[in-house]
């Protein structure tokens, strides 16, 4: 008798679940080290396609796209995190106020509306107000959909911090700004950092909305990869994909560790 928690077959299904999720990624990671030019046969271990990513024929295009992706993700996630932190303070520490439900719905709206609908609406809006599609339009769209991703971990963290810390500071004649900067902000930091990291990854990964509002000649890494893949999967794309996979894993690991460390201290 293994108790009420055990159900026969659930372990097998869990392993199946992980196999489904990881098999394609692992296969591509393995083939990115293939020496052969053919993507079908194995020609021995080699790093040539990683070299190709940085020095090959498409290197300049991917380099520019990576630069756009990273700078957009940095700016969008930072702006979204500031906006989300302010919103979290109002939502969690504002007591009951009129419009609280509506504010919550509004902040999370980008999560409810299907991406393709946001993409269409944003394209229509930018073209109606006469904004030329390019870096700025991508950035504005990214800031918007990053807000809820930054908001959720920050608000969750803030809910776990008792107001007594700030109140003690205020009782000792700290101004509100001092109480925020010296007490609340450091306590909120794990939530803010993981919110920022997740917003960064979401921005870096976005394809559908970016593809609609990027305009001609402007590329981010996902749209550049999509353009290449349309002509067939080449080995350098697999190397690039594996590198991006690695970046995602590093970021999620960082967010996970910061969150766990944050949970141990108050």
């Amino acid at each position: 008798m293994k108790g009420v928690r055990h159900y026969p077959g659930f372990l097998a299904l869990t392993i199946l679940c992980l196999a489904v999720l990881y098999a394609p990624l692992i296969v591509v990671a393995i083939y990115s080290f293939n020496a052969s030019t053919s993507i079908t046969s194995w020609g021995g271990f080699s790093l040539r396609w990683y070299g190709e990513v940085f020095t090959g024929r498409e290197a300049a295009r991917f380099g520019q796209a990576a630069w756009n992706s990273i700078t957009i993700a940095l700016i969008a996630s930072t702006v979204a995190t500031v906006i989300a932190t302010a919103a979290a303070l109002a939502m969690v520490r504002g007591g009951a106020f009129r419009g609280r439900q509506a504010s919550f719905a509004l902040i999370n709206l980008p999560l409810m509306v299907p991406e393709i609908v946001i993409a269409v609406a944003t394209l229509i809006f930018f073209s109606a107000i006469g904004l030329t599609m390019g870096y700025l339009t991508i950035l504005l769209a990214h800031i918007t959909f990053c807000i809820p991703f930054a908001y959720l971990p920050i608000a969750a963290r803030l809910e776990g911090i008792e107001a007594t810390y700030e109140q003690a500071a205020r009782d000792l004649y700290a101004t509100r700004a001092q109480a925020f900067r010296l007490i609340l902000l450091p306590l909120m930091m794990p939530g803010i950092v993981s919110g920022w990291l997740l917003a960064f990854i979401i921005s870096l990964d976005d394809f559908i909305i970016t593809n609609f509002v990027k305009g001609a000649g402007m590329e981010t890494l996902p749209t550049a990869i999509f353009g290449s893949v349309k002509q067939g999967i080449k080995p350098n794309i697999m190397a690039l994909s594996t590198l991006m996979l690695l970046v995602s894993v590093l970021f999620v690991t960082a967010a996970y560790l910061i969150n766990r460390k944050g949970r141990q201290t108050p």
Partner: peptide, 10 residues
Amino acid sequence: WVNLLIRTVS
């Protein structure tokens, strides 16, 4: 959290 485009291409 891995890029959906990369997952789909894979």
